[in-house]
Structure formats: C-alpha cells, structure tokens
Simulated assay, not measured.
Amino acid sequence: MTISQEILQTLKAFHFDNPEATWDELRGRLEDIAESCLTMAHGDSSLVAYEMIHDEHHVALREASAKLPLSVNQQRAVSKALEILEAAQERLEGRPGKLVEIVRDLKSDGCSTPVALSPSLSVLPSEASKALTFKTLSGLYMEERKDHVEASTMRDVKSSCEAIAAILGDLDLKTHTREHMKNLRDKLLEDRKPSTVKKILTRLSTVMD
C-alpha cells in the first residue's frame, strides 16, 4: 500500500513519526500546538487559510490512524490531535471554550506524573522567604520544557522571557501588583508592535501559570 506524502508530512509536523516517542514527548508537542492554535492572531485571509489547513491535517491524521502501524502512544496522540483540530476550528469561529479546556488538561496531565526534582529546582523551606523573580521562575519553566519543545520554540521562549525579566528585574512575584504588570506592558510597548507585546504577555501568563 502506498501511503500518501500528505499523511507522512502531517505526522512529522505533529512529531508523530517516531514510534519510540513517549507519551510525555508527544503530549509536550500537542500542548505547544494547542496553545498556538488558541493564542495566534488572525486576519480575514488567515482565518480561511487555517480552516483549510486544519481540515487537511484532520483528514491526514485519520487516514494515518487507520492505515499505519502506530504505537499505542502514537494512536493516543493522534486521538488528542484530532480533538485539538476540531476545537481549533471552533476557535476560528469565535468559540474558544473547548480549546481552552484541552490546553488546561494537557498542562495538568504534564504535571500529574511525579518528577524527582534536583536540589537546585526544589523549593526548600529555608528558601520560602526569598524573593521569587521572573528570571528565576522562567528558568524553572524552561528547564521543565527543554526536552519537550523544538530548539526554535525554545529560542522564542527564551527571548520573550528575557524581555520580561529585563523590565521586572528584582520584583518579587509573590507580592506583585496589577500596577507592576501594567508598567511592564507599557514598557514593552515603547519599542515593540502591539502584536509582539501581546505574544510576550501570553508567554508571561503561561510561565506564571
């Protein structure tokens, strides 16, 4: 049987082309895709384009599930990817609820497996009273994500986090106020486009969560 190039390209785009991939690895990629579908800005032309792209991916993934000898983890990931694509279509129609729930569930799934933290990542009792800066918090976030995202995505994350950390400086996030966040937004807008600032603030929200 000849498997179409479209199916193979879609599997690769979702990182489903590796039968040895663990669920955590696949879940991390799904989380990135779902979050991107939820937060991406669109114009009229891109709305139409992404409706077509989501449809094409949906068809390709269904064919892959039916025709290819995928592992249990791959089939589980394909099933979740289909849910994401269906929810992404609803988001393009102004109904983001399902996609919000999927992103939340994927994030909580990633936190549900106990992971032994090294002393450098643990919050020790003696450190409880220390200030928690954004630089420290984003460092923990990137350490968590480093094995689950592409290098290009991590570079984008690092760039956004560095821009935020440069403005927040030594601010203790445990005692931050709304005014601190408004000041951050205003500072970012001084030399960036609103669309860029929106993307950076979305990253801020993700790290804080």
Score class of each variant (00 low, 15 high):
Ile3Gln: 03
Ile3Tyr: 12
Glu6Pro: 03
Leu11Thr: 01
Lys12Asp: 06
Lys12Leu: 03
His15Cys: 12
His15Met: 10
Glu20Val: 10
Thr22Tyr: 03
Trp23Gln: 04
Asp24Arg: 08
Leu26His: 06
Arg27Ala: 14
Arg27His: 09
Gly28Arg: 12
Leu30Met: 08
Glu31Leu: 15
Ala34Ser: 13
Ala34Pro: 10
Ser36Trp: 15
Thr39Lys: 06
Met40Pro: 00
Gly43Lys: 09
Leu47Tyr: 11
Val48Ile: 14
Met52Cys: 01
Ile53His: 13
Glu56Gly: 06
Glu56Leu: 04
Val59Lys: 13
Ala60Pro: 08
Arg62His: 14
Arg62Val: 01
Ala64His: 11
Leu68Asp: 03
Leu68Phe: 10
Val72Phe: 06
Asn73Pro: 15
Gln75Lys: 15
Arg76Ser: 11
Val78Cys: 15
Val78Trp: 04
Leu82Cys: 01
Glu83Cys: 02
Gln89Leu: 08
Glu90His: 09
Glu90Tyr: 09
Arg91Leu: 01
Leu92Cys: 08
Gly94Asn: 11
Gly94Cys: 04
Arg95Pro: 01
Pro96Asn: 09
Pro96His: 06
Arg104Cys: 03
Gly110Ala: 05
Cys111Tyr: 11
Ser112Tyr: 00
Leu117Gln: 12
Ser118Ala: 14
Ser118Phe: 08
Pro119Tyr: 09
Leu121Trp: 12
Ser129Lys: 14
Ala131Thr: 13
Thr133Leu: 02
Glu144Ala: 12
His148Ser: 05
Ala151His: 05
Met154Asn: 03
Met154Gln: 13
Arg155Ile: 01
Arg155Val: 08
Asp156His: 01
Val157Cys: 00
Ser160Arg: 12
Cys161His: 14
Ile164His: 05
Ala166Glu: 15
Ala166Pro: 00
Gly169Glu: 13
Asp170Asn: 15
Asp170Ser: 11
Leu171Gln: 10
Leu173Arg: 11
Leu173Ser: 07
Glu179Arg: 13
His180Leu: 02
Asn183Ser: 13
Arg185Cys: 09
Asp186His: 14
Lys187His: 12
Leu189Ile: 05
Asp191Arg: 15
Lys193Leu: 14
Lys193Phe: 07
Ser195Asp: 02
Thr196Arg: 14
Thr202Val: 07
Leu204Met: 10
Ser205Asp: 05
Ser205His: 10
